[in-house]
Simulated scan of single mutants.
Amino acid sequence: MTTQTFDDRVALVTGAGSGIGRAMAVAFAKAGSRVVVCDIHADSAASTAADIGDDLAVAVPADIADQDSVAGLVDAAVSAYGRIDVLCNNAGIMDTMALPADVTVEQWERVLRVNLTGTFLVAHAVLPHMLRQGGGAIINTASEAGIRGGAAGVAYTASKHGVVGLTRNIAWAYAKDGIRCNAILPGPTMTGMAATATFDEIGLTRLAPVLALGERIAQPEQMAEAALFLASDAASFVNGAIVPVDGGWSAA
Protein backbone atom coordinates (compact mmCIF):
# COMPACT_ATOMS: atom_id res chain seq x y z
CA MET A 1 0.00 0.00 0.00
CA THR A 2 1.45 3.37 -1.02
CA THR A 3 1.07 6.50 1.05
CA GLN A 4 1.41 10.25 0.81
CA THR A 5 4.00 10.59 3.57
CA PHE A 6 7.21 12.46 2.82
CA ASP A 7 9.48 11.57 5.72
CA ASP A 8 13.15 12.21 4.92
CA ARG A 9 12.24 14.09 1.72
CA VAL A 10 12.85 17.67 0.73
CA ALA A 11 10.37 19.82 -1.19
CA LEU A 12 11.24 23.11 -2.90
CA VAL A 13 8.17 25.30 -3.42
CA THR A 14 8.31 28.53 -5.42
CA GLY A 15 5.79 31.30 -4.91
CA ALA A 16 5.37 29.94 -1.40
CA GLY A 17 4.88 33.28 0.34
CA SER A 18 1.14 33.27 -0.27
CA GLY A 19 -1.80 31.57 -1.96
CA ILE A 20 -1.37 28.16 -3.55
CA GLY A 21 2.38 28.07 -2.95
CA ARG A 22 1.98 28.72 0.75
CA ALA A 23 -0.65 26.00 0.98
CA MET A 24 1.69 23.60 -0.82
CA ALA A 25 4.57 24.36 1.54
CA VAL A 26 2.36 23.80 4.60
CA ALA A 27 0.89 20.58 3.17
CA PHE A 28 4.28 19.06 2.42
CA ALA A 29 5.55 19.96 5.89
CA LYS A 30 2.49 18.37 7.50
CA ALA A 31 3.21 15.23 5.46
CA GLY A 32 6.71 15.06 6.93
CA SER A 33 8.82 16.83 4.32
CA ARG A 34 11.41 19.47 4.96
CA VAL A 35 10.49 22.48 2.86
CA VAL A 36 12.48 25.16 1.07
CA VAL A 37 10.13 28.14 0.97
CA CYS A 38 10.90 30.37 -2.01
CA ASP A 39 9.26 33.67 -2.84
CA ILE A 40 10.40 36.87 -4.50
CA HIS A 41 9.25 38.71 -1.37
CA ALA A 42 11.63 37.86 1.48
CA ASP A 43 9.16 38.79 4.22
CA SER A 44 6.46 36.55 2.75
CA ALA A 45 8.84 33.61 2.44
CA ALA A 46 10.01 34.12 6.02
CA SER A 47 6.41 34.28 7.27
CA THR A 48 5.49 30.95 5.67
CA ALA A 49 8.65 29.30 6.96
CA ALA A 50 8.01 30.65 10.46
CA ASP A 51 4.46 29.29 10.43
CA ILE A 52 5.78 25.85 9.44
CA GLY A 53 8.60 25.91 11.99
CA ASP A 54 12.37 26.19 11.85
CA ASP A 55 12.81 22.44 12.21
CA LEU A 56 10.99 21.77 8.93
CA ALA A 57 11.44 24.84 6.74
CA VAL A 58 13.96 27.35 5.49
CA ALA A 59 13.08 30.57 3.65
CA VAL A 60 15.05 31.48 0.52
CA PRO A 61 13.99 34.63 -1.34
CA ALA A 62 14.61 34.42 -5.09
CA ASP A 63 13.43 35.80 -8.42
CA ILE A 64 12.70 32.82 -10.65
CA ALA A 65 12.96 35.02 -13.75
CA ASP A 66 16.66 35.58 -13.03
CA GLN A 67 19.05 32.71 -13.71
CA ASP A 68 21.63 33.77 -11.13
CA SER A 69 18.93 34.12 -8.48
CA VAL A 70 17.65 30.63 -9.32
CA ALA A 71 21.16 29.20 -9.06
CA GLY A 72 21.47 30.73 -5.61
CA LEU A 73 18.09 29.30 -4.61
CA VAL A 74 19.00 25.75 -5.59
CA ASP A 75 22.45 26.01 -4.01
CA ALA A 76 20.83 27.20 -0.77
CA ALA A 77 18.32 24.35 -0.83
CA VAL A 78 21.00 21.71 -1.32
CA SER A 79 23.23 23.36 1.27
CA ALA A 80 20.41 23.32 3.82
CA TYR A 81 19.10 19.81 3.26
CA GLY A 82 21.47 17.96 0.92
CA ARG A 83 18.92 17.05 -1.73
CA ILE A 84 15.71 18.06 -3.54
CA ASP A 85 13.10 15.32 -3.90
CA VAL A 86 10.12 17.43 -4.93
CA LEU A 87 9.92 20.65 -6.92
CA CYS A 88 6.65 22.56 -6.89
CA ASN A 89 7.12 25.07 -9.69
CA ASN A 90 4.30 27.33 -8.58
CA ALA A 91 5.43 30.95 -8.85
CA GLY A 92 3.70 33.03 -11.52
CA ILE A 93 2.05 36.31 -12.35
CA MET A 94 -1.19 37.37 -14.02
CA ASP A 95 -1.43 39.39 -17.21
CA THR A 96 -3.87 42.26 -17.75
CA MET A 97 -6.23 40.09 -19.84
CA ALA A 98 -5.52 42.33 -22.80
CA LEU A 99 -6.39 41.06 -26.27
CA PRO A 100 -3.49 40.32 -28.65
CA ALA A 101 -3.60 43.68 -30.45
CA ASP A 102 -3.68 45.56 -27.15
CA VAL A 103 -1.01 43.84 -25.07
CA THR A 104 2.30 45.65 -24.93
CA VAL A 105 5.53 43.90 -25.81
CA GLU A 106 6.79 44.70 -22.32
CA GLN A 107 3.77 42.99 -20.73
CA TRP A 108 4.17 39.98 -23.02
CA GLU A 109 7.85 39.57 -22.25
CA ARG A 110 7.42 39.97 -18.49
CA VAL A 111 4.64 37.37 -18.21
CA LEU A 112 6.46 34.87 -20.42
CA ARG A 113 9.70 35.49 -18.55
CA VAL A 114 8.19 34.68 -15.16
CA ASN A 115 5.57 32.06 -15.97
CA LEU A 116 7.38 30.03 -18.62
CA THR A 117 11.08 30.87 -18.61
CA GLY A 118 11.10 31.05 -14.81
CA THR A 119 9.47 27.63 -14.54
CA PHE A 120 12.07 26.28 -16.96
CA LEU A 121 14.98 27.92 -15.11
CA VAL A 122 14.08 26.34 -11.78
CA ALA A 123 13.54 22.90 -13.34
CA HIS A 124 16.78 23.29 -15.30
CA ALA A 125 18.69 23.97 -12.07
CA VAL A 126 17.01 21.21 -10.04
CA LEU A 127 17.13 18.39 -12.60
CA PRO A 128 20.89 17.69 -12.28
CA HIS A 129 20.42 17.10 -8.55
CA MET A 130 17.48 14.76 -9.15
CA LEU A 131 19.49 12.87 -11.74
CA ARG A 132 22.41 12.42 -9.34
CA GLN A 133 20.19 11.19 -6.53
CA GLY A 134 18.28 8.82 -8.82
CA GLY A 135 14.84 10.40 -9.03
CA GLY A 136 12.40 13.07 -8.03
CA ALA A 137 9.01 14.59 -8.72
CA ILE A 138 8.21 17.92 -10.36
CA ILE A 139 4.76 19.49 -10.15
CA ASN A 140 4.23 22.54 -12.33
CA THR A 141 1.35 24.91 -11.69
CA ALA A 142 -0.18 25.60 -15.09
CA SER A 143 -3.75 26.89 -15.38
CA GLU A 144 -7.08 26.36 -17.06
CA ALA A 145 -5.66 28.94 -19.48
CA GLY A 146 -3.12 26.29 -20.46
CA ILE A 147 -5.80 24.27 -22.24
CA ARG A 148 -8.17 27.07 -23.28
CA GLY A 149 -7.93 30.04 -25.60
CA GLY A 150 -10.29 32.32 -23.70
CA ALA A 151 -9.61 32.00 -19.99
CA ALA A 152 -7.05 34.82 -19.70
CA GLY A 153 -5.15 37.37 -21.75
CA VAL A 154 -2.84 36.42 -24.58
CA ALA A 155 0.39 36.54 -22.58
CA TYR A 156 -0.86 34.43 -19.67
CA THR A 157 -2.57 32.00 -22.04
CA ALA A 158 0.57 31.50 -24.12
CA SER A 159 2.74 31.14 -21.01
CA LYS A 160 0.55 28.45 -19.46
CA HIS A 161 0.24 26.55 -22.73
CA GLY A 162 4.03 26.61 -22.67
CA VAL A 163 4.10 25.20 -19.14
CA VAL A 164 1.92 22.31 -20.31
CA GLY A 165 4.37 21.56 -23.13
CA LEU A 166 7.36 21.90 -20.80
CA THR A 167 5.74 19.46 -18.38
CA ARG A 168 5.18 16.83 -21.03
CA ASN A 169 8.68 17.16 -22.44
CA ILE A 170 10.35 16.79 -19.05
CA ALA A 171 8.16 13.77 -18.30
CA TRP A 172 9.15 12.14 -21.59
CA ALA A 173 12.83 13.04 -21.35
CA TYR A 174 13.46 11.72 -17.84
CA ALA A 175 10.94 8.91 -17.37
CA LYS A 176 13.71 6.30 -17.40
CA ASP A 177 15.68 8.26 -14.80
CA GLY A 178 13.05 8.01 -12.08
CA ILE A 179 11.95 11.63 -12.50
CA ARG A 180 8.25 12.33 -12.91
CA CYS A 181 6.78 15.64 -14.06
CA ASN A 182 3.10 16.50 -13.90
CA ALA A 183 1.07 19.70 -13.91
CA ILE A 184 -2.02 20.90 -12.11
CA LEU A 185 -4.45 23.27 -13.81
CA PRO A 186 -6.15 25.35 -11.12
CA GLY A 187 -9.52 26.82 -11.83
CA PRO A 188 -10.63 29.97 -9.97
CA THR A 189 -8.87 29.88 -6.61
CA MET A 190 -9.03 32.18 -3.60
CA THR A 191 -5.58 33.83 -3.76
CA GLY A 192 -4.35 37.39 -3.75
CA MET A 193 -2.85 37.28 -7.25
CA ALA A 194 -5.89 38.53 -9.15
CA ALA A 195 -6.69 41.10 -6.48
CA THR A 196 -3.42 42.94 -7.11
CA ALA A 197 -3.67 42.88 -10.93
CA THR A 198 -4.90 45.63 -13.23
CA PHE A 199 -7.15 44.34 -15.98
CA ASP A 200 -7.87 45.55 -19.50
CA GLU A 201 -11.59 46.41 -19.70
CA ILE A 202 -12.12 45.22 -23.27
CA GLY A 203 -10.34 41.95 -22.70
CA LEU A 204 -12.16 41.33 -19.42
CA THR A 205 -15.52 41.99 -21.12
CA ARG A 206 -14.71 39.50 -23.89
CA LEU A 207 -13.59 36.87 -21.39
CA ALA A 208 -16.47 37.34 -18.94
CA PRO A 209 -18.80 34.66 -20.42
CA VAL A 210 -16.07 31.99 -20.12
CA LEU A 211 -14.85 33.12 -16.72
CA ALA A 212 -18.40 32.98 -15.39
CA LEU A 213 -18.37 29.20 -15.93
CA GLY A 214 -15.73 28.95 -13.24
CA GLU A 215 -17.57 30.97 -10.64
CA ARG A 216 -17.12 28.24 -8.02
CA ILE A 217 -14.00 29.32 -6.12
CA ALA A 218 -11.52 26.79 -4.73
CA GLN A 219 -9.35 27.17 -1.68
CA PRO A 220 -5.54 27.02 -2.06
CA GLU A 221 -5.45 23.92 0.11
CA GLN A 222 -7.42 22.01 -2.53
CA MET A 223 -4.65 22.72 -5.07
CA ALA A 224 -2.02 21.72 -2.52
CA GLU A 225 -3.67 18.34 -1.94
CA ALA A 226 -3.54 17.61 -5.67
CA ALA A 227 0.15 18.51 -5.77
CA LEU A 228 0.81 16.35 -2.71
CA PHE A 229 -0.77 13.34 -4.41
CA LEU A 230 1.17 13.84 -7.66
CA ALA A 231 4.45 14.06 -5.75
CA SER A 232 3.71 11.00 -3.62
CA ASP A 233 4.46 7.32 -4.07
CA ALA A 234 0.72 6.84 -4.56
CA ALA A 235 1.23 8.48 -7.98
CA SER A 236 4.42 6.58 -8.80
CA PHE A 237 3.23 5.68 -12.33
CA VAL A 238 1.64 9.07 -13.09
CA ASN A 239 3.96 10.99 -15.39
CA GLY A 240 3.22 13.70 -17.94
CA ALA A 241 -0.32 14.17 -16.63
CA ILE A 242 -2.07 17.51 -17.06
CA VAL A 243 -4.59 17.53 -14.25
CA PRO A 244 -7.46 20.04 -14.08
CA VAL A 245 -8.25 20.94 -10.48
CA ASP A 246 -11.25 23.06 -11.25
CA GLY A 247 -14.44 21.53 -9.86
CA GLY A 248 -15.51 20.45 -13.34
CA TRP A 249 -14.98 23.76 -15.14
CA SER A 250 -12.97 22.16 -17.94
CA ALA A 251 -15.67 19.53 -18.42
CA ALA A 252 -18.21 22.13 -19.54
Rank of each mutant, 00 (worst) to 15 (best):
N182F: 05
Q133S: 14
G162Y: 06
M190K: 15
V78R: 02
A171H: 10
I184E: 10
R206V: 13
V35I: 08
V10T: 03
Y174C: 03
G82N: 01
G153K: 05
D95T: 11
A123V: 07
M1I: 14
V245K: 01
L185A: 03
M190A: 15
A80F: 09
A226H: 02
G53R: 00
P61H: 01
D75K: 10
I184R: 04
H41Q: 14
G178H: 02
L213D: 12
D43G: 12
E201N: 11
L204D: 13
A173E: 14
N140I: 03
D51Y: 13
A183I: 05
L116K: 01
G92A: 04
I184L: 07
A151G: 15
A155P: 06
N169Q: 13
G92F: 06
L56S: 15
H129D: 10
N115D: 04
K30L: 15
R216D: 13
S69D: 01
V10K: 02
A158K: 07
A31G: 09
V163P: 06
G178C: 07
L99Q: 14
A62K: 10
I84D: 07
V74K: 05
R216T: 15
A195L: 13
L56Q: 14
Q4A: 15
I84N: 04
V86T: 11
N140Y: 08
A155L: 00
S159Y: 04
D39N: 05
G187W: 04
V114K: 01
G187S: 06
N140W: 06
G92H: 05
V37P: 07
N115M: 04
Y174D: 01
W172C: 15
A49T: 10
D51L: 14
R168Q: 12
F199L: 11
D7F: 10
C181G: 07
Y81K: 02
G248W: 04
A158C: 09
L211K: 09
T167A: 03
L116E: 00
A171M: 06
V74R: 00
V26T: 12
I52S: 06
T117D: 11
P209C: 03
G82C: 09
V126K: 01
V13D: 02
G178K: 03
A42Q: 11
A226I: 08
Y174Q: 10
G146M: 09
A123P: 07
G162Q: 02
R110D: 08
R34E: 11
A50G: 10
L131Y: 14
L127C: 06
D75N: 13
K176W: 08
V60W: 08
L213Q: 14
G17T: 01
I52E: 01
Y81I: 00
D7Q: 14
H129V: 13
I20Y: 06
L211V: 06
D233Y: 11
A71R: 10
S44V: 09
R83I: 11
V114W: 08
D8R: 13
I184F: 03
I147G: 09
N239H: 01
V74L: 06
P186L: 08
P244T: 02
P61E: 08
R168K: 10
I93P: 00
A27C: 09
V86M: 12
V70G: 01
A50Y: 06
L230T: 09
G162E: 00
R113H: 14
L99K: 12
T189S: 07
D55W: 04
S159P: 02
A123M: 10
A50R: 11
L12M: 06
L204M: 15
G178M: 03
T5V: 15
I138P: 06
R9S: 06
A91Y: 05
D54E: 14
